[in-house]
């Protein structure tokens, strides 16, 4: 009984950690963008203010049942993915061992899509044409980046004969190396796919405010927007931690985790802030050229 309670507290602490870290990363991103554009920029806790304000707003919009469930699906998917990603190496942190099983990497590849699908359902119910365009763009882009991402994951699974994240982490601890050196092409393909996963510029075709009025979320205000922002922050943490776990040897403590995830987070941020937005077909063909090539090379590297 006690262990279950401890696990639950640990899970809550993990969610809080993911939320806080994701929110601060978002704030730091806004600050970085501002400094690059020679502005002062908002304070780094600005995203917290935004979220508290959004949660305290009234939300009296009704377009149908799915519209209320879409944001819930999104945050459910984020938290579920979070539960399967080990935060730290070894015995977990804060009494919380993640819900890993042999095959959770495959599960996670599916689970990470679920949030976008839930949001697509919710946005579809609102009937806003901008939402529909945003959803089609998002799903097309997902077809783009999922292929190199899955190829890189498959390469790792085939190379190390395990489909578990903790298995991959243990291999790195035992062999005292990082998988980004053991299979560099898988790392390159996955990082290029991550650029699309983050939906930051130049791949922000889904939320492009000037083109499709923020796309899927265009009919969502107040608490729903707050839910989606929280979900996005948690999901950013999930993605970064997963990449750190798989490719960069995981982290022994929280400080190491923050340093490694932030270093990884700088790639999409800095790539985005210096690049203008792609068109939809440019974004998809981007993923189907070099990232796909590196994915194929990674699989060949794994098999020979």
């Amino acid at each position: 009984m006690n262990t279950i309670l401890f696990q639950l507290f640990g899970a809550l602490a993990t969610i809080l950690l993911a939320f806080t870290v994701g929110m601060f990363y978002g704030g730091i991103r806004r600050k970085i963008i501002a400094r690059i554009q020679n502005r002062v920029g908002p304070p780094i806790y600005q995203n917290f203010l935004d979220v508290i304000k959004l949660y305290s707003k009234e939300t009296s919009i009704h377009h149908g049942a799915m519209q209320h469930m879409g944001p819930v699906f999104a945050i459910t998917a984020s938290i579920t993915s979070l539960m399967f990603v080990p935060v730290l190496n070894g015995e977990g942190w804060f009494w919380f061992k993640n819900l890993n099983f042999s095959g959770d990497l495959i599960f996670l590849v599916y689970m990470m899509v679920f949030g976008s699908l839930g949001m697509a359902l919710g946005a579809g119910q609102t009937g806003n044409p901008n939402s529909a365009i945003g959803v089609t763009r998002g799903l097309s882009q997902m077809v783009g980046y999922e292929i190199p991402f899955v190829m890189s994951m498959v390469a790792l699974m085939a190379q190390f004969h395990t489909t578990s994240i903790t298995g991959l982490m243990n291999i790195q601890v035992q062999e005292n190396t990082w998988l980004m050196f053991s299979n560099p092409f898988a790392f390159i393909a996955a990082v290029l796919a991550m650029l699309g996963m983050f939906h930051y510029s130049p791949f922000d075709i889904v939320h492009a405010p000037a083109e499709v009025a923020s796309g899927p979320v265009s009919e969502f205000g107040g608490k729903y927007l707050g839910l989606m922002m929280s979900s996005g922050s948690i999901f950013a943490f999930v993605k970064l931690t997963l990449f750190v776990n798989i490719f960069m040897g995981g982290a022994a403590n929280l400080i190491e985790l923050v340093i490694k995830t932030f270093a990884l987070y700088l790639i999409p941020v800095l790539y985005g802030v210096t690049s203008p937005r792609y068109r939809t077909e440019q974004a998809i063909t981007y993923f189907w050229k070099w990232p796909l090539f590196f994915g194929v090379i990674a699989i060949l590297w794994a098999s020979f």
Partner: peptide, 20 residues
């Protein structure tokens, strides 16, 4: 934009009336 930068006051553009 960069000269007067209203974003430092927390003012940010919203795309649709629902979010504003």
């Amino acid at each position: 934009t960069s000269r007067y930068d209203a974003e430092r006051l927390g003012v940010r553009g919203a795309a649709t009336p629902r979010q504003a």
